[in-house]
Each structure stands twice: as structure tokens, then as C-alpha cells.
Design a protein around this nucleic acid. Structure first.
Lengths: 206, 206
DNA sequence: GGCCGATAACCTACACTGTAGGCACGCCGA
DNA sequence: TCGGCGTGCCTACAGTGTAGGTTATCGGCC
């Protein structure tokens, strides 16, 4: 039927079975349709994946209006992260694909506008935007589609990982093993984002 | 023949034809071997890709010894980047896979050691390491395996992209269009890295 | 020297993939 | 009424990862 329904079902499929499990045939089966019929609404598998990525991007909420630079950027960053974590197995589509659509531009506008308003010259504003975005993507890459490994709920696996690190023969790694074995993604994210926004804030004042 | 030769040839295949073109059969043909023979040295395609990633990781040069914290981290970051840019089409293997091998631990040791020596408590050191790593990965994700688009050598494509941005109806995007249309990855990288290392340096002093 | 177990190369076969090409139906404007 | 066109279906093709089984070659041991 419609492209929209196809994308919705495709996203559900990814959520349930993971990216690798997506095939035109399986998707068609779920929709009760012949595989080839999909090609009337989506031109090829790659375009389908791009479509899913755009659905994800569109789910980023707009930050509140009329708050200061830092709060705007922070809200957008957390919104982006939340949108990706809402569909962890699909998130790599957004993080690894080079999207050139309008959907990708809206968040850019949202963060660029307050930067310019804060007095950033356009080139510096783009620099700042890209630095934050790179950090966002890198962080999400780490936690998304992760094996449940790092969530650390399994105490046995954690112990094994800890032993591996301590027995690595690398002194600094051994010393920091308890912190390397686990990863509080939320805290890591907050830490890095704070640093970056601090730096941007300092630049804004000059 | 040996696992090593297989990985070398696989990396060459990726360099020449891209990740999507890698198949056990094609790789075997290049090696003049039956596809199934590969399974005697590598257990499955996924393990093969992991192997390629480790080859890339192993190519990161060790930073000079006995220099200060900032220089060590900077050298390692640039080394990481250079290693990935040396094989842009293979780099996503490192950036997207969750590697748990010893090879991945060596650079960790290299950056963790000076952080601890500088007085960082282990948990903060890991925080700092991860923040920088996230930025590294995010940045590389953007420039690697990129369509040659953003290299901007084609003035026609650049003009088209610029026109798209200016005609987007988004005021900030239009205003910053000349800087959004191109991307000097080297400069972006230096900018973000400087911010992060500044922040870590400031933390080290307290 | 003769045997034996292991290793590695090969071959076949299976279930599955994305999608090009063609056919049949039903709606919509002329 | 008649064309066309968009949509859905079907077949077919070249290619995929890899399980299972067969053979030859080689190193060590009696």
C-alpha cells in the first residue's frame, strides 16, 4: 500500500529482529503482499533504509522556544539521543548514512539559529554544530545496537570482562578496569556534552 | 593459505571495491582458492570483517614516549585518524563494530596511562578517554566512505548543494549555507579535538 | 618402513537475497 | 467505449553465506 505503511512496518521489523534480518521478502510477508509490489512505492532496498532513517530523524522533538543557547542545544542533543535510543537497532541507519534530505536539515536549523543569534560568525557556528554532532554520533554508536553486554545486568559476564582487563598485562588498563568494564552511557553523554557546551559558551562570550 | 594472507587480500578488496562488494566467493577467486577453503582459517564472514578491523587498528602508530599528556593524546588521535583515512572504505568496520580484542586495548592503554599519571582518578580518566573517542568516531564517520561529494572538487555539485541550502526556507541554514555546503574535515577535527583537550587539560590542573 | 590422525583443500547442495522483465487487473480522463 | 497508467503479482536470474561430505597431503609414532 502506501510508502508510509511500508516504512512503519519496516521500522517495526528492524526493532524486532535487527537490521540484518530486513529483507524485501520478509517485509512483504509481514504486509501480506508480494515482494515485488514494494518496488511500486520504494525504489530499492537502499531507499527503504534511507526512508527508515528519515522516520527516525523526524521523531526528534523540537526544543522549547525562547530559551538560551545552551539549553536549546542541550535539549536538541538529548532529543536526538532519545529518538535513537527509542529504536536502538535502527539507529545505525541514521548514524552511518549520509542523509541529504530536508528532514535532516530541520534540526540543523534549530541549533544553528541560536548559535548565530548568540553572535557566532557562520563559519564558527558550523564548526560548533559539527563538533557536537560528531560527539553525539560517536556516543550513540557505542551504546546503540550494543550487545546487551555493557548494560552489565549479567554479573557473570561482568566478572569475566573484569578479569580479562585485569589480566591484560597493561598497567593502566588494569588500574582502571572496574570503570572500563562497565559504561554508564547516560553519564558519559552528559560529561562530554557538558564539556563541549562549556567550550561553546566560552566562545560565545568573546 | 594463512589467515594473514586472507586478511591482507580482503583489505585490498575492500579498498578497491568497497565493503558491499566483499563476498567469500569473490575473495576466494582473488586468492585462487575454493570459497570453502577460507573457512579453514577464518570462521565465517563476520569474523573475517572483525579481522580486517583489527588489521586497521594495529596500524595505529604508537605515540612518542615521554611527552606531556596533551601531546600524547593528540598524537594518538591523529594517528587513529590517519590509520582510518588510509583505508576509508574499510574504516566503518572499526567505527561500527564492537571490538573486544587485545588489539583494541593497546591504544586504550596508551591514552589511559598518561591520564592516570597526570593525576586523573581512574573513573574520570575513562570518562575523558571515552569522550575523545566518541568525537573521533563521530568525525571519522562523517568523512570516511563519504561520497566524494563533500570533497567539493566538483564545482557544479557544490553550486547545486549551495542552491539547495539557500532555497531551503530555513533562515539560519541559508545564512550559513556557504559553510554548510563544504566541509574541511581536517579543520573540523582540529577544532573539536582542541576543545576537548583544553577541557581535559583544565581538569588535570585541579 | 608403515600406519594413523589431523589438517586443509575441494565439491555439492540448500535456503535465501535483491531485483529485472513481463503479465493482468481496475480505475480515470477523453 | 476506449485507451493508458498505476498497481499488484509471478517468474527467473545471478549471487550470497555456509552446512555437510569427500579426498589428498603431511607430520609423528610404532
Amino acid at each position: 500500500m502506501s510508502r508510509e505503511r511500508i516504512l512503519r512496518e519496516a521500522l517495526a521489523l528492524v526493532d524486532e529482529e535487527g537490521l540484518a534480518a530486513v529483507s524485501m521478502r520478509k517485509l512483504a510477508r509481514r504486509l501480506g503482499v508480494d515482494p515485488m509490489s514494494l518496488y511500486n512505492h520504494v525504489d530499492g532496498k537502499d531507499a527503504l533504509l534511507d526512508g527508515i532513517a528519515e522516520v527516525l530523524l523526524a521523531a526528534i522533538p523540537a526544543p522549547p522556544r525562547d530559551v538560551d543557547l545552551r539549553e536549546t542545544m542541550s535539549a536538541l542533543a538529548y532529543g536526538f539521543r532519545a529518538a535513537m535510543l527509542g529504536h536502538p537497532r535502527a539507529a545505525p541507519l541514521v548514524l552511518t548514512r549520509r542523509l541529504a534530505s530536508m528532514t535532516a536539515l530541520t534540526p540543523v536549523e534549530t541549533v544553528l539559529a541560536p548559535l548565530l543569534a548568540a553572535g557566532f560568525p557562520p563559519d564558527r557556528a558550523v564548526h560548533g554544530l559539527r563538533a557536537v554532532l560528531a560527539f553525539l554520533i560517536g556516543t550513540l554508536m557505542r551504546e546503540v545496537d550494543a550487545a546487551p553486554t555493557f548494560s552489565g545486568t549479567d554479573p557473570d559476564a561482568l566478572r569475566r570482562r573484569l578479569a580479562d582487563l585485569e589480566g591484560s598485562g597493561l598497567p593502566a588498563v588494569s588500574a582502571a578496569a572496574p570503570f572500563l568494564a562497565v559504561c554508564d552511557h547516560e553519564a558519559e553523554f552528559a560529561f562530554g556534552l557538558r564539556i563541549l557546551l562549556d567550550a561553546l559558551g566560552a566562545m560565545a562570550e568573546r
